[in-house]
Every structure is written in C-alpha cells, then in structure tokens.
Design a binder for these strands. Structure first.
Length: 423
RNA sequence: GUGGCUGUAGCUCAGGUGGUUAGAGCGCCGGGUUGUGGUCCCGGAGGUCGGGGGUUCGAGUCCCCUCAGUCACCCCA
C-alpha cells in the first residue's frame, strides 16, 4: 500500500528549465542591487509573531487572517514571514547597524508565506526580492530605490511597465484626513456595503481601493489626501517627482495607491505590468516606513524599500515573450559501447575536473539509445568510448548539432573538447 | 473565507441521450541499423477515468460530498 502525497495547496515545485530561469533572475537581481550599493543579506524565514503583528499592523488582512503562526517547543509564538521588511528592520536594530554609517542599504530575497486563496500569480509560499535603505531622510534616496527596481525590471527586457507613485503623508496628517474621508463617504453613500464599512472601521485609507461605483464617485469629489498634507510632506513628494523626472523615469501619480501594510508613510509606489490582468498586475511595490525602526526598538530613523514578486515577474516575462531559451544542463555527454564503462567514467571525471559540464550514460543500453539520450540532454558534444577505438587508444567526438565526427587520443580529449565548446 | 468553470496515460485532449476488454497525438521504451541521435517505418509499456459515497442490472457519463487546479471577489508580490 502506498499513499501518494501531493504538494499542499498554494505551493509548487520549480523544476527543469524553470529552475534555470529562477536562478538567472535571482543572480541578476542581486547583481543589480550590488551594483547600486545594496549588498545581499540573509535573514530568517520565521520571526517572533509579535514582530509582524506590530509592524505590519493588526488591522491588516495579513495579520488578521493570513499568517502561518505556530508554537515551537518552548511555547514561543513564531510566524513564517509574510513579508521581508519587518525582518530587515529587526536585523538592522538588533545589530545596531546605524553605527556602521547611514544609510544602511541591503538587499534580500526568498520565500514568503501567506495563507491566501490561490490564483494565478498568487501563492501561499511565494518569493520576493527586495531592498531597504534605512537612516537617511532624503527624497533623492526615495528616487534611488525606485530607480533601482525600475532599472532591474527594464533590464530584464520588460516593456509594458508602469510606475505608480503616491504619498500618504505622515501618520498625523493621515489621521486628520481619514476622519474627513470617512465622514464624506458615509454621507455621500448611504447604505455602504459591508466590505467598505469594515474598511472604514479598521483601515479607512483602504476605501480608496473600493470598486463600488458610488464610492469611486464620492472619492472623486471628496477630499484628497494630498490636499491636506503639510508643507514638508508636500515638498518631499515634489522632490521625489522631480528626481524621477531628472532620472528620466516615467511615472503616474495615483491618488488611490495605498499600500496594505500599516508601516508605510510618505512615498508609496508600485511597479505594474500591462500584460497581466488588472487583478494581479503588481510586480512589486514599496514605500517609506518612517516609524518602523523606532517601533522595533531602534533609533527614530526613516526607511524606504520595495519588494518584487518573483512569480509575477516570471509571468510578465512569459507574456512579453522574453523568457530565456534554456539549452541542456551539460555541454558534453560520454557514451560507451562494449566493456568501456570504466574508461568512459574516467574521461568524464577528467572533463569535470577541468570544469566542463559533463554527463555520462549509465546502464547497458544500445548506442542508438545512448545517442537518443545524448540528443535529449542538449549536450553539444558526444564522446563515444568504444572498444574498437580504445584498442587504438582513441575515442570518437561527435558534434551533436552538425553530426561531424573526429577522433581524439586519450591525452587530447580534454583539450579538443574545450576548443569546441569554449567558443 | 465566498462564488463560477475544470479535473480521463508523463503532457495536450477525444470519449451524443449511462451499455462489452477506455482512445488519439506527442513523449517514453524496444526493434528496423550485431558501434551512431535529431527524419521515417514497426512494435510495446503506461490509466485508482482526482478521491469517497449514492442511483442503476450496468456509471468516465447522472446525483451528493470532498480534494485539487483555474478565474473572480477580497487582498496583495
């Protein structure tokens, strides 16, 4: 009796060519980040539950119903990270990284976990790359962070990109605004639907996301957050937009762009893809978080960062037809016919030692079958180690693209192969 | 958490109103070629028809439940 166990809902395996694309994407992200002065750090995938509750916010959907929380054997409440910024800020505070000079700039990436219902571009274990810049309050730093993400996405070859930016001001400005906003919406729309009513109660800014046409209309005529901002917030935002202009980065100001995490303040932004449908078109997003470091027990320092969704970027790349072709995983495959398995493996070992990606056939199969395997492997060269040849001290090299064959002595195999595939 | 659609071989899919041993293409394995792949020809293996229950003489087909995928709501990456 065997029971077949499948992967849990919302998780999946990355195999074959997808693995290569993932690795490639990851490499390119961290290379870009490093180029901009954001070296990679590695932080844990679980943290004390309290960290996320306090930083992400109790009123958010993430904390209310999407966290993978568990008790460990010491009865500590731990949570699989639903996002990366909280852990990064904790890391910054825990190691007093402000002492190393500000801003502290770093990149991170890896799996995140949210117990959401699954759909295209949305999984329970999903993956993000992100950067954070903590400790300096300068709109130019906002621009740098936004530009970094933009440059990375553009360099992948994505064309259908829109950068959305907004500012949600300081907490006290927002508090003032939220009151007038709630008041306005309730007056303008009698019989508000329960979803929107709940939003007004828990997290009023989120009504800006409403799709109820009556609410949308009420918002259009209602107070705008930007109009109630103080001079400082206003000039900061203006400076960010000027910086984007100067950097030649196109953007749209979107009054309704409100990020779903409580720690955001001031500048918020999102990279949207034009090729994905409207529901899951956000490739990534981020913003300022000016009270978070202090709330985590550090000095009162501002921060800004973004996170990109790996799965969504790959979907966008696929829609835009820019996924890289992936050829075989080896360049050379060694076949053997007759009693030559041992010398065949010795040749393979020599090639591998020299850094040549090499596979070798196992089992006792016909040469024809071995060639089929060689063909499928995507290797460029097959080395045939045959009894007849070996008696003369040579092996046969076959170019699998052209079918051309040549002989090589045992001493010259490695060199000849390196010449062929080295180009 | 709620709703719509879908679930047959490794993959993509056929299988009117329920009726014998469930099919195709691609892929895989073997042979044609006693040491030569990607073309061609021949043969073969491979299926709890997502799972469970029910109706029926009989269920891949009808009903219920359940699981999974997908899309949408919600929310976000």
């Amino acid at each position: 009796m065997s029971i077949r166990i499948s992967a849990p809902k919302g998780v999946y395996d990355v195999i074959g060519a997808d693995t290569v694309r993932w690795d490639d994407l990851e490499t390119r992200f961290f290379e870009t980040a490093a180029t901009w002065g954001y070296p990679r750090v590695r932080i844990p995938v679980f943290e004390h539950t309290e960290l996320f509750v306090r930083s992400v916010g109790e009123a958010t959907d993430i904390v209310r119903k999407e966290m993978y929380t568990f008790s460990d054997r010491g009865d500590r409440s731990l949570t699989l990270r639903p996002e990366g910024t909280a852990g990064m800020v904790r890391c910054f505070v825990e190691h007093s990284l402000d002492q190393a000079g500000l801003p502290w700039k770093a990149a991170y990436g890896g799996p995140m976990f949210r117990a959401e219902n699954v759909q295209r571009g949305r999984y329970r274990q999903f993956h993000q790359f992100g950067v954070e810049a903590i400790g300096v309050d300068d709109p130019a730093l906002d621009v740098e962070v936004i530009a970094l993400g933009w440059a990375f996405l553009r360099h992948l070859g994505l064309v259908e990109l829109t950068l959305l930016v907004n500012t949600i001001g300081r907490p006290e400005e927002r508090a003032r605004y939220v009151e007038v906003l709630a008041d306005h919406v309730r007056k303008a729309v009698p019989g508000l639907d329960p979803d929107d009513e709940e939003r007004l109660e828990l997290n009023p800014l989120r009504v800006l996301d409403s799709r109820d046409p009556r609410v949308v209309e009420a918002l259009a005529t209602g107070p705008r957050l930007r109009d109630v901002l103080g001079d400082e917030s206003r000039s900061h935002f203006g400076a960010v937009l000027d910086g984007l202009d100067a950097a030649g980065i196109p953007y749209e100001v979107d009054d309704t762009l409100v990020r779903g995490l409580d720690y955001y303040t001031s500048t918020t932004f999102e990279y949207a893809s034009g090729t994905l449908d409207s529901a899951q078109n956000a490739l990534g997003g981020g913003g300022h978080y000016d009270g978070l470091v202090e709330m985590c027990g550090g000095p009162p320092l501002p921060g800004i960062g973004f996170a990109l969704g790996v799965e969504r970027i790959l979907i966008a790349c696929e829609s835009e037809g820019i996924l890289a072709e992936v050829r075989g995983t080896v360049d050379v495959i060694v076949l053997h016919v007759g009693e030559t398995a041992v010398p065949a493996r010795r040749i393979a070992a020599e090639l591998r030692e020299a850094g040549v990606r090499t596979d070798v056939v196992f089992g006792n199969r016909s040469l024809k079958a071995q060639f089929k395997q060689a063909d499928r492997s995507g290797a460029r060269v097959a080395v045939v180690v045959g009894e007849r040849d070996m008696e003369r001290g040579v092996v046969t090299l076959r170019d699998l693209d052209t079918g051309e064959q040549s002989e090589a002595t045992l001493d010259s195999v490695r060199q000849e192969i390196e010449e062929v595939i080295g180009s």
